[in-house]
Design a protein around this nucleic acid. Structure first.
Lengths: 216, 216
DNA sequence: AACGCCATTCTTGTATGCAAGATTATTGAC
DNA sequence: GTCAATAATCTTGCATACAAGAATGGCGTT
């Protein structure tokens, strides 16, 4: 439990939203949340304010808070921006790579290799996250890293289902290999290009996304 | 005045920070703010929570809120990300340009021409903002547009001084011309490239930034 | 005179109370 | 039976009260 109730609630509710425990469109009643967590309404309100500022919920004046439903199109737009930011991170990583970051990338990459080889989609999901975070860190831009982590977090629920697609696991890992090669070769432009296409959603993968979002 | 006191306060304090009325590092006392705005501490706290979530201030538990001082390096990083996002917006604009957006870009572009020709740096500052916003809108990605506007807003205090540099006004406008040409020609890659260099901070402009930040 | 410890004071964090707007239910008319 | 208007209820928004942790100042000791 965090240092104060407000922050703890913020994290708690945020996780509940991102793990789809509170579904998009659902109303978040202050009193209900307060009694549920055994606190008063004040820290609940403060938590909701923050989630509103982040963009996870919407507080309509005098009408309560609801979980935002991005909808397929907006999720697509978010992936588009994510792709761009990851591309930048990759190009910076290629230029600024140092020993520590190189080892972090190698380590996470080989963990991806194992889970991909084992066909363990859940493990790969987690390792993949660490791999990408290693690239953000290698870019050596704190602000960019924060933005990437935040967006990555928000897209989590939607990325999970991407991996379910046929052969996506091995395809993803092969792309990782090329990305690592480009970064280690110091080829920033290539790393950028590869990451953009790796993260972005093109063609039939968009309809996959829409389809899977409809069945949640 | 906004619909409720909390939001009004958020906007008010946010503006005060962005216009440097509250300087970076300054402590924001809840009681002082409350009496200053003639309200109780509750909506003040709610406003501060939101500003904390946005990243404009930092609330250290039990130790109050302070305005975040990004520092030259982090501002540079923010410009780096901004450049990337604007590049994406430009490339999307080139691909998706329609009549309305085309006219909006033309209109704001010619206003820039006037203020640049008149050497009116303050007017150009404003027109330039509208020009860039027209490009965001032309990209037809709500999420990207929001991200761009938000970052643009946060970088406002630092962009102003960029224009003070010798010849920057006419240089900036010439770059705008090339950007408009690329977008109207449907050349997304070129628009992206031009916008990236237009927005980014390279070489001696970084030291200009550092120097001007030191004398605030 | 300087350093450290303790008490006081101040600020933040949470709870509760009250007023005003929104929602829902009920009653009446058509 | 359906629709509308009005009353009752519920929820949010803001203020105030109280408790707990942090900062500050004074006092004593070395």
């Amino acid at each position: 439990m965090s240092e104060n109730v407000g922050r703890w609630l913020r994290d708690e509710i945020e996780n509940s939203i991102l793990s789809n425990e509170f579904s998009p469109g659902e109303r978040l009643d202050e009193t209900v949340l307060a009694t549920r967590f055994g606190v008063s309404r004040t820290p609940v309100r403060e938590a909701l304010m923050q989630l509103d500022a982040i963009g996870l919920i919407e507080i309509r004046p005098r009408r309560g808070a609801v979980v935002i439903d991005p909808g397929p199109h907006r999720v697509y737009e978010m992936f588009e921006v994510m792709a761009e930011l990851e591309g930048l991170a990759g190009s910076l990583a290629a230029r600024r790579l140092d020993k520590v970051s190189r080892e972090a990338i190698t380590a996470t990459h080989s963990r991806c290799e194992q889970s991909a080889g084992a066909g363990d989609s859940d493990a790969y999901y987690y390792d993949n996250e660490e791999f990408h975070k290693a690239i953000y860190a290698a870019g050596r831009s704190d602000f960019l890293e924060e933005q990437c982590v935040q967006l990555h977090r928000r897209l989590r629920p939607y990325r999970r289902l991407q991996l379910r697609v046929r052969n996506r696991l091995s395809t993803s890992f092969l792309e990782h290999c090329a990305i690592v090669d480009a970064i280690f070769a110091g080829d920033g432009d290539e790393a950028r290009r590869l990451l953009r296409t790796h993260v972005g959603i093109q063609g039939e993968r968009f309809s996959d996304l829409v389809a899977s979002m409809a069945t949640r």
